[in-house]
């Protein structure tokens, strides 16, 4: 076995209590059908539904009581 590891590097990461990280270029269709293009290499998508800049995460999830935070 090699001592040089292979690292996990997923394209989609669900952050506990927070957003979904997306790596790479994507076009996201929100629930009203509007399209949003990612502009950075890693993007945080809101999972708590409370962001003021949806579909992007703006940190609002941190203000939510635990039971409203995404798992």
């Amino acid at each position: 076995m090699s001592d040089v590891p292979t690292y996990e590097h997923p394209d989609v990461v669900l952050c506990p209590g927070g957003p979904m990280l997306l790596r790479g270029k994507h076009v996201i269709e929100d629930s009203s059908g509007e399209l949003h293009e990612t502009t950075r290499r890693v993007t945080a998508l809101c999972r708590c539904d409370k962001s003021a800049r949806k579909p992007w995460c703006d940190g609002t999830h941190k203000l939510l009581p635990e039971k409203l935070a995404p798992s």
């Binding site: 952050c15 990280l21 945080a44 992007w56 703006d58 940190g59």
Partner: peptide, 14 residues
């Protein structure tokens, strides 16, 4: 920075 740091905090901490 609202959007960028929502990503950066996850990267930096985790």
């Amino acid at each position: 920075h609202v959007e960028a740091d929502a990503v950066h905090e996850q990267l930096a901490v985790r």
